[in-house]
Design a protein around this nucleic acid. Structure first.
Length: 247
DNA sequence: AACCGTCTCAACCGCTCATGT
DNA sequence: TACATGAGCGGTTGAGACGGT
């Protein structure tokens, strides 16, 4: 028995949103706030699936969205984060204020992927492509060397986590996040594994800490975790793993 | 001007995860 | 513990924009 559909498909609109629908959605969220997406369409008088409303709000209508082209800094950050996290677009988006996972995913697929390929870098593994020209490989090496990011051992292990054994990945659609080659992701990246000053001073590796924090982001700076409220209600903990232990 | 191929990106789909009962 | 439900994620699709011929 499959799960029930998220909405009554027969009575919902699909496709592009109209201006009126946008206005209704924005007005409703301004009045009642985000959340309870399932019941929102009815409450807002929209013939849309709750999922569709959420997506429209998150990706297009949210007032804090940054529109326009990606900057070079954003490009570089996306590449760095992708080399660490793979296709975890929501995690990557979390480090880019005003950008959405969908936007970053699209940008990656349409621009960055091509840019990396042109530089002789495999966009999935972030390693030089086999059979590439020496010049391409050389430029790849330069770029990889440039991708030095302060990382803790925990985050580095996260980045270098080997893929699950084939028998455990019966999931057809979700196995493409990064290294599918059987090798650890970007094992020869020049990752600076030294603990950043703040993290070194305040977060010994035995303590659970926010991943954003370990990536060098302070609270309020892209990271939405609450630095002044540590604990399960504040940080989303990322506990460092023991040697040989993987997520 | 018309056609065609390519590109972009908003939106959808199917799935997993998190949470409540 | 098992199940139901809602939220969120990542891959994919398709309509419209754009550029070349």
């Amino acid at each position: 028995m499959g799960r029930s559909p998220c909405c009554e498909k027969a009575h919902t609109n699909k496709g592009a949103w109209t201006k009126e629908e946008d206005e209704r959605l924005v007005a409703h969220i301004r009045a009642h706030g985000e959340g309870c997406w399932r019941s929102l369409p009815k409450a807002a008088g929209l013939l849309r699936c709750g999922k569709s409303c959420r997506l429209r709000w998150m990706n297009y209508l949210r007032p804090d969205l940054k529109r326009g082209n990606f900057t070079d800094d954003e490009d570089e950050l996306i590449i760095r984060l992708h080399s660490l996290l793979g296709n975890k677009w929501s995690l990557i988006a979390g480090q880019l204020p005003g950008r959405t996972d969908n936007e970053i995913k699209n940008y990656w697929n349409t621009h960055i992927k091509r840019k990396l390929l042109a530089s002789g870098i495999d966009p999935q593994t972030h390693r030089p492509l086999r059979g590439g020209t020496e010049a391409a490989a050389g430029s790849a090496a330069v770029q990889l060397q440039h991708m030095t990011i302060p990382l803790t051992t925990a985050a580095a292990r996260f980045a270098a986590k080997p893929p699950p054994p084939p028998e455990s990945s019966n999931d057809s659609g979700r196995s493409s996040s990064g290294a599918s080659t059987g090798e650890p992701r970007c094992p020869d990246l020049n990752l600076d594994l030294s603990v950043g000053p703040a993290a070194a001073a305040e977060t010994p590796t035995s303590q659970p800490v926010c991943l954003c924090y370990r990536l060098g982001l302070r609270a309020g700076e892209a990271c939405s975790c609450q630095a002044d409220n540590p604990g399960p209600q504040g940080f989303r903990y990322f506990r460092p793993l023991e040697q040989g232990q993987y997520l």
